[in-house]
Design a protein around this nucleic acid. Structure first.
Length: 351
DNA sequence: AAGCAATGCAACCGCCCGAGA
DNA sequence: ATCTCGGGCGGTTGCATTGCT
């Protein structure tokens, strides 16, 4: 193993890319596409290895890269997906249009540090003491990432959730807490960036998840006591989440061609809803109202959930920065919905 | 203002896996 | 069936920037 053949050449340059190199790569890819990355450097006149070119393009130069802060919705999605699939950044990135696996990975690694350390000052049980003290890596926990913690800590929880992927989807407690994938059973406006949400057959009373694929999750949501205030569960609903048309667009390139570039979008607002409840014309006002409703529900759920479960720490959904609301004990509940998502999601490919 | 620490992030490394010879 | 090659992915490193003292 080691370097690929294309990287063994002495002449390959390493390190940061210069603007000139970027320009060469962009010019080449936009005019020729990429068939074989190992050929790109030579044809583009770059003294880089193919892998380096690929990485530079995918992580930085693609025209549809979405940069800037992660939105709260994206944060929630990342948490949920991480709870479901673990450190499979490429998979998580596939559900976040415009975001790269590298970006998400970096974000997680830095963000989770902040999240974990934040409750330190507010912990009533042990003021000033870290809630989660990093452990030296062990054989057992090394594979789960660079953050390892003591018993009852985040890493174990994530592994636990990951292991729950094979849980029987008919499990009764599927929605014992509100999922981070939030739907409105009365309305069908998009909630998740990069996805559109379809309403489906509301006649089903089954409490199960079915037909889950990588890009499509059909969630059957039962009506009974799913939410503390039950604002959204007056009826059951089937909700289909799928990448929106914009997400699936080919940017003008033939998706069947070898040169097809994975599409991303940099303008989430261009997402098209396939909703019905807001009418065929899904207005921004409607979307905003739905969003506000979801925020309200989540906030109310948070308050009640924290009252009922003071021993957990909850992500504060109401603040953009995200605060941890500490309970009496210092356990961390990275995402109260992760268990559900972990149970909900199943993937056709072995994960 | 200077020095140090913390943080963010681009890029590289090493490995895995599938396709094709 | 085996080997080679190249794409892809997760983990890690190292530099630049920012914040703090």
């Amino acid at each position: 193993m080691g370097h690929h053949s294309c990287c063994n050449q002495q002449k390959v340059k390493r390190g940061l890319w210069s603007p000139e190199e970027d320009e060469k790569l962009i010019r080449y890819i936009t005019t020729h596409g990429y068939g074989c990355w190992s050929e790109v450097p030579e044809k583009a006149g770059l003294q880089r290895c193919g892998k380096s070119c690929r990485l530079r393009w995918i992580n930085y130069l693609r025209p549809d890269i979405r940069r800037g802060r992660f939105t709260p919705e994206e944060e929630k999605l990342i948490i949920s997906l991480h709870g479901a699939v673990g450190n499979r950044w490429a998979h998580i990135a596939s559900h976040l249009p415009g975001r790269t696996d590298n970006e998400i990975k970096n974000y997680w690694n830095s963000w989770i540090k902040k999240k974990i350390r934040k409750p330190t000052s507010s912990s009533s049980s042990s003021p000033g003491a870290p809630v989660l003290a990093p452990n030296p890596p062990t054989d057992h926990n090394q594979q789960s990432g660079q953050f390892t913690y003591n018993a009852n800590q985040l890493d174990q929880m994530m592994n636990h959730q990951h292991n729950n992927n094979n849980v029987d989807p008919h499990h009764d407690n599927l929605f014992s807490s509100p999922p981070l994938f939030m739907f409105d059973t009365a309305g069908c406006c998009p909630v998740l960036q990069g996805y559109t949400v379809n309403s489906g057959d509301c006649s089903s009373n089954n409490n199960f998840i079915s037909t889950l694929t990588e890009d499509q999750m059909i969630l059957h949501q039962n009506s009974s006591s799913m939410w503390p205030n039950d604002q959204s569960s007056s009826s059951s609903a089937t909700v289909l989440i799928q990448p929106s048309a914009a997400f699936s667009s080919t940017n003008g390139m033939d998706s069947n061609s070898a040169n097809y570039l994975p599409p991303l979008i940099d303008n989430i607002e261009n997402m098209v809803a396939i909703g019905q409840s807001c009418g065929e014309n899904v207005s921004l006002d409607c979307m905003q109202k739905q969003h506000d409703d979801h925020q309200l529900i989540m906030n109310q759920w948070e308050v009640e959930a924290q009252q009922q479960c003071p021993s957990y720490l909850f992500w504060d959904q109401s603040e953009e920065e995200g605060q941890l609301l500490s309970g009496e004990e210092t356990q961390v509940l990275a995402t109260t919905a992760s268990n559900n998502i972990g149970a909900m999601l199943s993937y056709p490919s072995p994960l």
